[in-house]
């Protein structure tokens, strides 16, 4: 086995005039949980479908477990499991039947594990496909994928429609899969989910990889917003390194402060804040949308106004 589970370089794929992938690069090490981040329409689903051999790339190279995803599709599928972001089930089949069907076509599943997962996700396997809600359809695909002993899991926004409780169960299950040495490619547009699970992250936009690395390497990209009420007006915070857009308002003897701080400088900023007597504190984790806007907003603006050469059309896959 190679140490790279997935290597993709310079991948292109067009649907008519829409460029869904525009030279995408992606490397996933064996045994890691890799976050695959990007806004809607960035090309995440298209990439995963190329990796599954469901779509054929126009150009570029892609390798999965050392094999070609288009030519060795069936052979590769025995070693991987897939959860689509929008699961469609057969109206006349029960959820349990769909789970068994998918797992046995993949080459068999551990029955005890299947029952245990069904239990943990609170899924009723006797209901017919048409009777399931969106979240329950999603659970069917998650159970089918994780009950298998696939070495590679391709998860395309797997928790869309799951409630927060089930989201927690999902995170536990993924961490167990990681502990068992499996490789996970987790596509998402929720940064918080990826932060909890991923070792490394790739951020894509408009079909191209814009940032890739470990979470600590990307730490400078994450900027937390802090809002606090203090006993005394918090002065001088804007002199600290990594602190941005400080707004202080006086309120009687005390005051309110709002500022943004880079992930690496959070500790210093909070210590400094504590000196003013903190009465209440709210911190907003950075959202991917903010991140994308701040780091790539100039590019977006350029694309919107003058044509900078490439004719990108957003959209494509979902």
């Amino acid at each position: 086995m190679t140490t790279k589970a997935i290597t993709v370089s310079g991948l292109h794929k067009s649907f008519g005039r829409t460029h869904a992938l525009d030279g995408l690069d992606l490397t996933v090490e064996a045994g890691e949980v890799h976050g695959f981040l990007g806004p809607n329409g960035a090309g995440k689903s298209t990439t995963i479908r190329v990796l599954l051999g469901l779509l054929r790339a126009d150009s570029g190279a892609a390798q999965l477990l050392g094999k070609d995803p288009w030519h060795d599709a069936v052979e590769l599928h025995r070693h991987l499991a897939y959860v689509p972001g929008d699961v469609e089930l057969w109206p006349g089949l029960t959820g349990g039947e769909a789970i068994d069907l998918l797992s046995r076509l993949r080459g068999g599943a551990d029955k005890r594990r299947r029952d245990e997962l069904t239990e943990r996700f609170g899924l009723d396997p006797t209901k017919k496909g048409r009777a399931y809600s969106k979240g329950n359809r999603q659970k069917v695909a998650i159970v089918a994928a994780l009950a298998s002993d696939a070495e590679l899991l391709l998860l395309d926004e797997p928790t869309s429609g799951l409630d927060p409780l089930m989201e927690v169960v999902f995170q536990d299950v993924i961490l167990e899969a990681k502990a068992a040495g499996r490789t996970v490619l987790l596509s998402s547009h929720i940064l918080a989910q990826v932060e909890k699970l991923a070792d490394r992250v790739s951020i894509i936009r408009l079909g191209r990889t814009v940032q890739s690395g470990s979470l600590s390497e990307l730490r400078h990209l994450t900027r937390t917003t802090i809002e606090a009420e203090t006993d005394r007006p918090a002065a001088g915070l804007d002199r600290l390194p990594g602190v941005h857009s400080v707004e202080v308002t006086a309120e009687g003897a005390g005051g309110r402060v709002r500022f943004a701080v880079d992930g690496g400088h959070l500790d210093t900023a909070v210590r400094e804040l504590a000196g003013f007597g903190v009465r209440s504190l709210i911190s907003h984790p950075p959202t991917l949308e903010e991140l994308m806007l701040r780091h790539y907003g100039d590019e977006l603006a350029a694309n919107r106004h003058g044509d900078t050469g490439g004719t990108h059309t957003r959209g494509g896959a979902r």
Partner: peptide, 15 residues
Amino acid sequence: NAGRAEPLLATGLSR
């Protein structure tokens, strides 16, 4: 069309 072929063809089942 209904999106039900996709999960099946992502298993060990050939087209």
